[in-house]
């Protein structure tokens, strides 16, 4: 490469405009600037990942060094565990609800509050508020709301004249109660993404379409939606990865109960791996979770986000 030779014509890219240094070539810059982050990334991300993979072949309680090699037993136990299958199903449910309910809700609200009207900023802030709240705080607040004696649900029940249910105590309904909290907690984030996306759409298109007599519905379907596609794709990406990692909301609400009906993969990892001091088993869950997240992330990037 001769970009840095003085004889080259006027450089086009910003990299080429770098002053020629006698000691640092392009590789030199890469080494100097990349090394610190590479070292950090390796010690804080790559190494623990390899470690977890290594631990997943051992029966180990975390004290001392892992010695009891058990091969694939942890993985066998994992896939034979009905609780893990429930957790998988719940994660699937969270993904479905996020994509089918939460994102359309966020999009709808975004189209409402991105218009200029008195109070738009106020509504944006209100809808965004749940997302600002710490997950654990949101969980605790909702556990009060769901309380069958004193919660909002209880008052509602009394007002409407029926015996208030204890939603979180019912293994049929608890997961739906958790889903409501998850949608409530995160729709604001997606709404903000959509507002940003909507503001990037030039009003000229809408104006032109309006002049041509397009209805509001037509404008939404043929202008807003196609132009918002990149944002929606990103939103789905965050939704799925977030759903796979659901944990903080579940712990204060149900701790995975009753009868393990509200476990997610991460709460399963924590309660069946770390709390029980089965670090090897927990690592096996971590490996499976990582593979799922990584497969999804790469596949989605290749197939859906490829244009961006």
């Amino acid at each position: 490469m001769s970009e840095f030779a003085p004889s080259t014509p006027a450089p086009a890219s910003s990299l080429r405009r770098l002053p020629k240094s006698p000691s640092l070539g392009a590789t030199g810059f890469l080494v100097v600037f990349l090394a610190p982050s590479l070292v950090l990334f390796t010690t804080l991300v790559i190494l623990p990942m390899i470690q977890a993979g290594w631990y997943s072949f051992f029966d180990w309680n975390g004290y001392g060094v892992p010695e009891n090699f058990v091969g694939l037993r942890n993985f066998q136990q994992l896939f034979g565990s009905s609780v893990f299958l429930t957790a998988l199903r719940n994660n699937g449910l969270i993904i479905a609800v996020s994509v089918v309910l939460q994102i359309p809700l966020a999009l709808w609200l975004a189209t409402l509050v991105s218009r200029r009207f008195a109070g738009a900023v106020f509504f944006r802030a209100v809808f965004f508020l749940p997302f600002v709240l710490a997950d654990v705080a949101a969980g605790i607040i909702w556990s009060f709301i769901y309380d069958g004696n004193y919660g909002l649900v209880a008052s509602l029940g009394h007002a409407l004249g029926f015996d208030p249910p204890f939603l979180l105590a019912d293994k049929q309904w608890a997961i739906y109660a958790v889903l409501v909290v998850i949608v409530w907690k995160y729709f604001g984030f997606h709404m903000m993404l959509f507002i940003a996306g909507l503001q990037g759409i030039s009003p000229d298109y809408h104006e032109a379409a309006e002049i041509d007599g397009a209805s509001r519905r037509q404008r939404f379907l043929h202008i807003t939606l196609p132009l918002l596609k990149p944002t929606i794709a990103l939103s789905v990406f965050f939704s799925v990865l977030g759903a796979l990692q659901t944990f903080d909301v579940i712990m204060p609400l149900t701790q995975g109960g009753p009868a393990n009906s509200t476990q997610s993969m991460v709460s399963f990892l924590y309660l069946f791996g770390i709390s029980r001091m089965k670090i090897g088993f927990g690592s096996a869950v971590g490996v499976v979770l990582f593979l799922m997240c990584a497969t999804f992330a790469f596949a989605y990037k290749k197939m859906v986000l490829k244009d961006e």
Binding site: F166, L168, K171, G257, P258
Partner: peptide, 14 residues
């Protein structure tokens, strides 16, 4: 004992 339902309502989530 559980069948005799001696516990407060919602004890599963308490």
């Amino acid at each position: 004992l559980g069948e005799a339902a001696p516990f407060q309502r919602g004890f599963e989530a308490a």
